[in-house]
Computed example of a mutant assay.
Amino acid sequence: MGASVLWGAVAASSLLLGAVLGVVRRWSDAMVGTVLGFGAGALISSISFELFEEGLAVGGAMALALGLAFGACVFYVSDRWVERIGGRARGGAAGLPLALGAFLDGIPEQAVLGIGIAEGGGVSVALLVAIFVSNLPESIGSATDMRAAGSPPRRILLLWTAVAVVCMLATVAGYAAAQVTAEHFVGAVDGFAAGALLVMLVGAMIPEAQAKVHEKAGLAAVLGFAVAAGLSAVS
């Protein structure tokens, strides 16, 4: 249990770190777009080599597919809700959607981290690094976008502190759940994380990176994918 708390806190800490970086200084569109592109590539690698592959092997195709569809639908509906209440008003195009994405994919993603620890497989270095690295552009991009839209720094930091704490607790919950649930649950959790991530990537993160740095977003994404894939291969 102690290990799940420790590694959960390490993975989630980058959410708050990125929010602080986004609040304390103004980041250029080029920097934010490049970091968003790099993080998108790292997340795509995590989906491919950690979430999808492990979910299929452990839980089977049906549990993975159901989790994938459910995660995608939950994020889509939640994102529409954010849009309706004005989350994208006044220029904050991707701020709240990125925070929502970090929340929805962070919970199952970090739960998977806890599940791996509970099953005696230790900490997946590739997954840990992918979570940490991808959290940074999500929170930096969100905090920068929300700050530009006029949100007070205190509100931004409180939002991301809450997201980080919940995501850290998800690692502990995953550890505890692994003691009493079947392997199909693990596959469904992997699928949910992958589904939420994919919708967030296509709907918010990649378009925001493309809008800020244009074709350079693709290069940054490939580099992010390569780094995360390499870590997955050696872990």
Rank of each mutant, 00 (worst) to 15 (best):
E138H: 04
G121R: 11
G92M: 07
V82N: 01
L16G: 03
E83C: 05
E109Q: 10
G150L: 11
T171G: 15
A130D: 07
S151G: 03
G218F: 13
P152D: 13
S48C: 12
A118I: 02
P108R: 03
G195W: 00
G174K: 00
L68F: 15
L159V: 10
P207L: 11
V32R: 00
G121K: 09
A148G: 13
G55F: 04
G106T: 05
A93L: 12
G174M: 08
F75V: 03
V35A: 15
G174P: 07
V20E: 11
V202Q: 10
A19G: 14
V189C: 11
E183M: 14
A162R: 01
L16F: 15
T181V: 15
A209L: 13
G39N: 05
E83N: 06
G8Q: 10
A93H: 04
A89M: 12
V32C: 09
G18F: 08
G91W: 06
G41I: 06
I85K: 06
A177G: 13
V166A: 15
P137M: 10
A126Y: 01
G187W: 05
L16Q: 12
E54P: 00
S14A: 15
G91Y: 07
G195A: 11
R80M: 13
I115V: 14
P97A: 10
W160K: 01
L159A: 12
S4G: 10
K212E: 10
F70C: 12
G224K: 02
W81N: 05
A228D: 04
A228E: 02
A3E: 15
V5G: 05
G18C: 13
F75M: 11
A40E: 05
G141S: 12
S142Y: 03
L64E: 04
G87I: 07
K212L: 15
F49K: 01
R25Q: 14
L231D: 02
R154A: 15
A173K: 03
A177Q: 08
I47E: 02
G203Y: 02
M200S: 10
M146S: 08
K212S: 08
I44P: 01
A149Q: 08
A217H: 04
L17S: 13
A196F: 05
E183N: 13
F52Q: 06
L15K: 00
M200E: 04
A126T: 04
S232P: 02
G106H: 02
A69G: 10
V227F: 14
V189S: 03
A126N: 02
L127E: 04
A228K: 00
V10R: 03
S232Q: 06
G33D: 10
G37D: 09
G150R: 06
W81D: 02
Q210M: 13
H184R: 13
G116A: 09
A126E: 05
I156P: 02
K216H: 13
K216M: 13
F132R: 02
G150H: 09
A102C: 11
M1K: 11
D79C: 01
F52N: 05
P153C: 12
A196Q: 03
G116E: 07
L128Y: 06
M31G: 05
G37W: 01
R90A: 12
V133D: 03
R26D: 15
E50Q: 13
S139L: 09
